[in-house]
């Protein structure tokens, strides 16, 4: 098998709490972990979905992948080559191969530039390029994303939300990027426009054999778009596997809860039994306060268990032998404590 396109190992990010207005004075100056040893790999031409709720660290992950944040003590390999975040060239090479489309189409386009010039910004070596060559490339990119030629002369406020997202896409494609990070690219759009953009993304992937890292909270979109999916919960990857495996046989209790909470046209019954949910835990398993299947080992951080191509971070899938060991250890500790 060829080298994975992009490989991320043990990615952790934490931020210092600066203000006390929002977090209370007790937390001021402390660190908040936003991503906790996240590892995954993306193959060429694959759509890798990352699903998570508010505060799961989705956007931080997206920003790290394009070099906006610089993580420490983690390995990010691009086509087998390791990226050193201290070296400027390395960060630039990361930015040259990975493009990003943000959720908010208004905030990500400069309102004072024409659409034509916005797409031009995505071109590599813009300065050296001849005028004619530049124009052909821009028109090609606009054609790829099905943006009418007439819109190239408009300014961002004059075009619709769907068209703005097309411009964002054209900007990354003009740069010949091979991996696209899509951070909630359709969440601010109307459903019919979302459908158009999703169809466009599928078409582009087939034509240009690019890879997507598709980040969203929308399970329907993830299910429709992705080859593989990872579930992110408060900075931790709890489960990762092929889309069908994940949706048909969710292993982690959180994945199960998430999929069953989704109201779709084919399942609109709200009268099913739900269990109580609590705050994410900082000790042991992060989901233990909400988990209906919580048992003794959950006080400890669960291992990542790989089975049938699915990676799941849960004690439920640990072998009985190892479980007994952990349980007796916990009991022993408790015994010592009392």
């Amino acid at each position: 098998m060829s080298d994975p396109h992009l490989e991320v190992e043990n990615l952790s990010m934490r931020f210092k709490v600066k203000t006390k207005i929002l977090h209370g004075s007790a937390d001021q100056g402390k660190f908040k972990t936003v991503l906790n040893s996240v590892s995954f790999a993306i193959k060429e031409g694959e759509t890798f979905g990352i699903v998570g709720e508010t505060g799961s660290g989705k956007t931080t992950l997206a920003k790290t992948l394009v070099g906006i944040y610089k993580p420490k003590n983690c390995t990010i390999k691009l086509q087998g080559k390791e990226i050193n975040f201290k070296k400027r060239e390395d960060v630039l090479s990361l930015r040259r191969s990975i493009g990003i489309v943000f959720q908010d189409p208004v905030g990500s386009l400069n309102p004072r530039l024409r659409v034509f010039d916005i797409i031009a910004e995505g071109l590599p070596d813009l300065q050296k390029m001849k005028k004619g060559e530049k124009e052909t490339k821009i028109r090609e990119a606009a054609k790829l994303v099905e943006l009418p030629e007439s819109k190239l002369e408009s300014y961002p406020p004059e075009i619709s939300g769907g068209e703005k997202q097309r411009v964002s896409l054209a900007r990354t494609l003009a740069g010949g990027k091979k991996i696209l990070v899509l951070d909630e690219p359709t969440s601010s759009l109307d459903v019919s426009i979302q459908a158009q953009i999703l169809n466009l993304l599928i078409k582009l992937k087939r034509e240009l054999s690019i890879s997507y890292i598709f980040i969203t909270h929308d399970l329907n979109v993830i299910k429709f778009m992705c080859d593989r999916v990872a579930v992110l919960y408060y900075g931790q990857l709890l489960e990762e596997g092929s889309t069908i495996e994940l949706f048909e046989r969710p292993r982690h209790p959180y994945t199960y809860d998430l999929i069953h909470a989704n109201v779709t046209l084919s399942s609109t019954n709200l009268y099913t039994t739900d269990h109580e949910s609590g705050e994410p835990s900082t000790e042991g398993c992060v989901y233990k306060n909400s988990c209906p299947k919580r048992f003794e080992p959950c006080e400890r951080n669960p291992p990542v268990i790989v089975r049938n191509g699915v990676r799941v971070k849960c004690w439920l899938y640990e072998t009985q032998e190892n479980l007994n060991g952990v349980i007796s250890e916990i009991k022993k500790e408790l015994g010592d404590g009392s």
């Binding site: 429709f224 069908i244 084919s266």
Partner: peptide, 15 residues
């Protein structure tokens, strides 16, 4: 039709 319900192999969304 705009709301995706199934997997990708069911074809593009009909919009």
């Amino acid at each position: 039709n705009s709301v995706p319900e199934g997997y990708m192999d069911e074809g593009p969304l009909n919009v």
